[in-house]
Nucleic acid binder design. Structure first.
Length: 199
DNA sequence: AGGAAGATCTACT
DNA sequence: GTAGATCTTCCTA
């Protein structure tokens, strides 16, 4: 791992216009910032999952309904929907002619920790954002965010360069909680990071 | 009306 | 670490 040469800069929109697994892997080590009333909340992304199109049985694209339609928008769009009473934060990826998306499963809390703790009603740092439903609750994110695109001026969510990880510092496993998974594992996480939802 | 859905919390072997 | 109850929304019959 090393500090990214682009540290602090916003990730370009082209970054998201690639297959979900590549984006999911490279999103690790990026900063996820959510601005609430001009105050930043967030931290470093430490766990993600890739979801694909209609051929992926675990993907919303294979299920129909309005979430599917939202998934067909341009790369970089925020995609939030509810599962088991939890909002889950995704970012639409590409390439443009093929649908896919990346689920943000966990971040390492860094910015606005007291506020995030209040949002969650949890004051133990390791339990604060170590799961997709925990992340959205800590960052106060819901389906109203579906109208934003991460690189647009008015977006309350931003993705910034921070740390670059090497391939051997990244762990891989099957996606968590899905009833019908693909053969290839599509969950990515930073090894030895204590804020992943599980090892 | 019924059931599934990328989850979380609690309470323990 | 796992087991079971429970959370809410929306799709399909």
């Amino acid at each position: 791992m090393r500090l990214s040469p682009r540290y602090g800069r916003e990730v370009e929109i082209e970054f998201f216009d690639r297959a979900a697994d590549a984006v999911a892997m490279e999103l690790l080590g990026k900063l996820l910032i959510r601005f609430r009333d001009n105050k930043p909340l967030g931290g470093m992304i430490v766990e993600t999952e890739a979801y694909f199109g209609e051929e992926d049985p675990a993907s919303r694209a294979s299920k129909g309904g309005k979430i599917k339609d939202l998934m067909y928008r341009e790369p970089g769009y925020i995609l939030v929907y509810m599962v088991h009473a939890n909002w889950l934060l995704n970012i639409v990826t590409g390439p443009s002619e093929k649908v896919s998306a990346v689920l943000i499963r966990a971040i390492e809390p860094m910015i606005g920790i007291p506020e995030m703790m209040d949002n969650r009603g949890v004051y133990e740092i390791r339990k604060l954002t170590s799961g997709p439903g925990k992340v959205t609750k800590a960052l106060d994110i819901n389906d109203e965010f579906n109208r934003y695109r991460v690189n647009s001026e008015d977006s309350p969510i931003k993705i910034l360069y921070y740390i670059d990880y090497e391939w051997d510092e990244i762990g891989r496993s099957h996606r968590i909680g899905v009833s019908k998974d693909l053969e290839e594992p599509f969950r990515f996480y930073i090894k030895n990071n204590e804020f992943v939802s599980r090892v």
